[in-house]
Each structure stands twice: as structure tokens, then as C-alpha cells.
Design a protein around this nucleic acid. Structure first.
Lengths: 110, 110
DNA sequence: TCCATAATTCATGAATTATTGAAATGAATG
DNA sequence: CATTCATTTCAATAATTCATGAATTATGGA
């Protein structure tokens, strides 16, 4: 993860449909969703969604996998981890006591 | 933190100078940096930096505080926390075992 | 092979965003 | 109270991004 990758990823997440897609896929975990299901769930045209999925793919935020004629998409948590690690590199002026709360309170609402 | 806030924040981080500013401020913790110091450190003109700082402020990613005639800026970790919480809401299909690694490996490099 | 389905690619126009020079604001100093 | 320093605001131009219709690719079934 370098600066260019990070910029790509943040740009990818700064568009309404793409943010919706990513957050929806995050909730789906390893189940994922097919492109068509995503388009229907979010009420977006196929080609528009496809363009946006391609941005997310290119940003390393989603993965995909062909499944018959459909293509199934998943949130790429490794990509996300890389992004957050880059963003928080050397954080908090070297004081773990300030830093811990930031990380720890990211309690997952599973 | 709602969707609009999140989009603002990601858009703010998707511009090179602003990403540099935020990451630099993250490393500075509660020490922060004055606008002029930031401009010099990142080799950006004052008015360009000012416009970018205002975007980061508006996105809730930095705070500032007047200090004599200068203005000191800080990364706003609460804002960042809100953003990440929003992004990861209901993550991993309700399976904490998949979710934990994502959060925990964000070990802070303090 | 031919057709239907699922998804992607491409070109275009509309809208948004970024940078800059110039001017203005706000706070401290003499 | 005038000056200076630090920063912001303004207006204009340049560059980027977005959704869309039309065309294309890929897969599976008749």
C-alpha cells in the first residue's frame, strides 16, 4: 500500500453508490453478492454499477469471482486493512496511550 | 456520522495534499502543527493549503486552535473513529471470527 | 449453432473539484 | 493606531469525475 493506492481507495469510497456497495458487501462477509443482486438491491443500472465495481476492484477494496454467468463480489478486508494501516502509520506522536483508544473502540458490531 | 459525512471524509482523504496533511498530523498527535509549518513541510502554497485544510476541517478529520497569530491543526481522531465505525458497521456477516482479524491487526506502530 | 442472460466497455456531455493570483481579514507588535 | 505577519476568501481557469445509451464480451442452455 503506497500513497497512490491509498488515494485510489479513498476516491473509490467517496462516491455514494460505491460507498453503498462496499458497506453492503462488508455486511455480507464471505457470502458476498452477485453484481446483479447488488444492482437490484441498490437500484442502480447495470453499466453504472459495473463501472463503479471496477473502480472498487482497482482500488483493492473488493474481490470478485465468476459464478456461472454471474460474477460474485466480496469486500476485500485485506485491502481495507492495508489502507487503514497506511493511514494510521506512526500515529499519535509515539504515545500508545493516545493511540489505543482509536484502534480499540473500533469494536465490531457483529 | 451519516452517509453524507462519510462521503465528505473520504473525498477529503482522496486528494494528495490532504492525505499528506492528515497523515502528518496523525504522527504528531496532540502536538499538532501550525498551518505555516504544514505548508513548509509539504511544500504547498499557503492559500492552496488553506483551502485543503478547510476541506479537512469540514470533513471532521482535523481540529484547529488559534495560537497567537498562527493557527495550529490536529488530526481529529474522534472524527476518524466515527468514519471507520460507519464503514465497518455490521461487518463480516455477523461472524466475529472473521471480523476480529480485520480490527486487531490494525496494530498501531507507536 | 442460435438465443438469452449477465456483465463489461466505450464515447460523450454535464457537473464537480483543484489551483492560482489577488485581495481581504484578524491578531499581535511597536 | 498603523504596521506586519499568518491565514483565509474570492473569482477565474484547468482538470477530473460521473451517469448514460449503445455496443461488446462471456457463459449456459435449446
Amino acid at each position: 500500500m503506497d500513497k497512490k493506492d491509498a488515494l485510489n481507495a479513498f476516491a473509490a469510497l467517496s462516491q455514494p453508490t460505491r460507498l453503498d456497495v462496499f458497506r453492503l458487501l462488508i455486511t455480507k462477509g464471505e457470502v458476498g453478492m452477485q453484481a446483479g443482486e447488488l444492482a437490484e438491491a441498490l437500484d442502480v443500472r447495470q453499466n453504472t454499477l459495473s463501472a463503479n465495481l471496477s473502480v472498487l476492484l482497482n482500488a483493492g477494496l473488493v474481490r470478485n469471482q465468476r459464478e456461472g454467468r454471474a460474477i460474485r463480489y466480496f469486500a476485500d478486508t485485506e485491502g481495507l486493512q492495508g489502507l487503514l494501516g497506511f493511514l494510521l502509520q506512526d500515529c499519535c506522536g509515539g504515545r500508545p496511550d493516545l493511540c489505543q483508544p482509536l484502534i480499540q473502540d473500533l469494536t465490531c458490531s457483529c
